[in-house]
Amino acid sequence: MRLINRIPSRPVAVALAALPFAAVLIAYALGSEIRLAANPQDKLLPAPATILDTAIRLFTQGDRRTGEILLWQDTWASLRRLALGVGIGAAISLSFGMLIGMLPHARRGLSGFVAVLSMVPPLALLPVLFIVFGLGETSKVVLIVIGITPFLIRELSQRVLDIPHEEIVKAQTLGASSGTIALNVVLPQILPRLISAVRLSLGSAWLFLIAAEAVASEVGLGYRIFLVRRYLAMDIILTYVIWITLLAFLIDWALKYLSRRAFPWMEAGL
């Protein structure tokens, strides 16, 4: 039988999915074991048990001075910035994407500009943002907005153009105005595309968030990682990295679930 026709059975599929995770864990545990055997004070690869202890401490024990749990504070601060940045970016790109996709005049006027804008490396603008907006929350949120919006606009305007011309003509023959078509034909068909585009852009959104927090901040997941780096606190850094990964995964899964529940027609044909 050809390799391309071999399909794993259910238990084999589960085992295959778990395999890379297990391999990485084992490799790390072995490496840590070897280094700690040579030098019990080694900080580079703390034992998995140490990381687990640290994680439990970070999640449950408050700061000795203030009694507040720093990890949760960092999480809320970061998630708030991320939600604001992605939300504002999505709102801007939805309106501009629909304008560019629907109106030939807007398309002529804006699509070239957006194409050039999306080539500006957002991180290079970070100093400008700090100068203009100060070191507070605004500059971090604006960095995320600037980072993801050009991509989202290009993606969404293209998806608007992908709507079959027949459907737009049909709506016109039913007497629909431009506004009615935007509201009843384009918007409902583009919303699931917005969600999937946002899912794609979340990776870069996290990147910009952590970069902005690393440079100047007082609280936040990225800030904490770069703070404890000075003490070589690998156990804390790894806990934070795993926590960020888990958060990103959960957000992605939630968006996918939302898209499925809210737009059943997307999968009606399958």
């Binding site: 027949e166 459907e167 039913l174 009615t180």
Partner: peptide, 24 residues
């Protein structure tokens, strides 16, 4: 592509009446 795929069959017929006036 002659019907609106994001609307149910019934709402496709309703659209023929409702689209003529904003908000559709």
């Amino acid at each position: 592509y002659s019907v609106f795929r994001h609307m149910t069959v019934r709402d496709n017929i309703v659209a023929a009446e409702s689209f003529a006036r904003f908000p559709g």
